[in-house]
Design a protein around this nucleic acid. Structure first.
Length: 324
RNA sequence: ACAACUAUUGUCU
């Protein structure tokens, strides 16, 4: 209970006072640490538990695998995998299998994720979803699309599958495929909520079709920071600073304060077009008026902008110096 | 019996 409420100190204290600690109490504590992003503490608990000669169960393993994925510790993930194969009959368990797929995908080893996937005797929507998301996140949109197609011989895609596949279409600029998936979403009785809407905007924006992104944006009844941010980013990518700024200011008119990510997109737009003065202006104004504290990405953008501009100047000089 | 896990939407690198 304490672990779930995010009070880990109390969870730990209660745990320490328990006269008999069993797998359930250890797993509850490990889950608490994992959920709070304290991956290393979760792993430490996992080792301590084993020192007590307590055998981890399916749940303990899936949580630890999840931790391996989030801290991208492929080495430990493989060790746990071997341990599971060697000591328990869990390798055919779908929950463990899915956790393994996700772990390998998050650790960028899609080959190993694939091996686990192929070995799974029965695959559910989460098994497919973990693969598709893994491909989408590693710029392997074509594989994601292939898996998406094959999956439909067996299962109906759910909302999460659609979100992943839209992402995949965006990363490879597959506009036609994206449109077809948009239609499929409309055909399915899935509610076109803010998250699906945002994913559609993002897909169209990444495919460079701001008209369609705009269409989705306008059709939405509710919009959040991500909806606006995706529009800003879309125009920014194309170097259309003016349009990006329309949405950047639009969101502020709607009472949504741009965050660091939105602001980075604006600076990117300036950098793509080489607008040094505008970049500086937004950098200064946002710092002073909106209260955005520049972070590393912002400085990176500014460095990009300035070096890009310097190159252009040099290039211009070169061009004028050239005899013809 | 008690813990119940795992895939998902915006920026730069």
């Amino acid at each position: 209970m304490y672990a779930k409420c995010g009070s880990l100190t109390e969870a730990q204290m209660t745990f320490d006072r328990l006269p008999d600690k069993n797998v359930v109490s250890w797993t509850a504590l490990i889950t608490g640490y994992a959920k709070q992003g304290e991956g290393h503490l979760a792993i430490e608990c996992f080792y301590k538990m084993q020192q007590q000669n307590l055998k981890a169960n399916e749940l303990t393993f899936s949580i630890i695998l999840n931790v391996c994925g989030s801290i991208e510790d492929l080495y430990l993930g493989r060790k746990i995998h071997e341990h599971i194969v060697g000591n328990n009959g869990f390798e055919c368990n779908i929950g463990i299998g899915n956790a393994l797929i996700d772990m390998y995908a998050k650790c960028s080893s899609l080959e190993e994720a694939c091996i686990v996937f192929n070995k799974l005797p029965s695959k559910d929507v989460i098994s497919w979803g973990s693969m598709i998301a893994g491909f989408a996140q590693h710029d392997e949109g074509l594989y994601a699309l292939q898996f998406f197609e094959s999956m439909q011989c067996w299962l109906k895609p759910n909302k999460i599958i659609f979100l992943s596949i839209l992402k995949a279409c965006g990363t490879i600029g597959a506009l036609d495929q994206g449109r077809r998936i948009h239609e499929k979403i409309l055909e399915s009785k899935l509610r076109l909520d803010i998250i699906v809407g945002n994913a559609l905007i993002d897909m169209y924006a990444n495919c460079g079709s701001m008209n369609e992104a705009c269409g989705v944006f306008n059709s939405m009844s509710d919009r959040d920071m991500i909806s606006w941010g995706a529009m800003v980013a879309g125009y920014a990518q194309l170097g259309l600073l003016d349009s990006a700024v329309v949405y950047y200011e639009g969101m502020q008119c709607c009472g949504i304060k741009p965050d660091n990510l939105t602001f980075t997109a604006i600076l990117t737009a300036c950098s793509h077009v080489g607008l040094v003065d505008e970049g500086w202006w937004y950098f200064t104004v946002s710092k002073n008026c909106i209260g955005i504290i520049p972070n590393e990405s912002h400085y990176n953008c500014m460095i990009d902008l300035l070096s890009h501009a310097a190159c252009l100047k040099e290039a211009e000089e070169q061009a004028t110096l050239q005899p013809n």
